[in-house]
Amino acid sequence: MEATSTPRITCAYLNSYVGKNVMVVGKVMQLRGDEAVIDADGNITAHLNRDSHLAAGSGVQLIGKVNPDLSVKVLSSMDLGTGVDFNLANTVVEIAHQHKSIFTYDQ
């Protein structure tokens, strides 16, 4: 229906998605006020919004826009708890990039 996608990415893919909305699944490493460091196959700096309630050490799904400095401006965040298999999530990112035809629209 709506042909817009929010590509799943990890740290390594930030470069290719500057200015675009992306989805990141990672582990909250650090919380500093409205900034957080998320580990998704590498550390990503996330600028949080007011509604973000993250817990250090647990998994999080961020949807946000990639800034030119490769930080992410968070539009929506969701706490995923502690049972997240991050290797699995990173594998999904790799697979999604290998098979773009079923995962993403070119934007």
Binding site: R8, G59, G83, V84, A89, A96, F103
Partner: peptide, 11 residues
């Protein structure tokens, strides 16, 4: 309940 089901489904 378990986020891993999302990853699993995509694979």
């Amino acid at each position: 309940d378990d986020f891993n089901e999302v990853s699993y489904h995509m694979l």
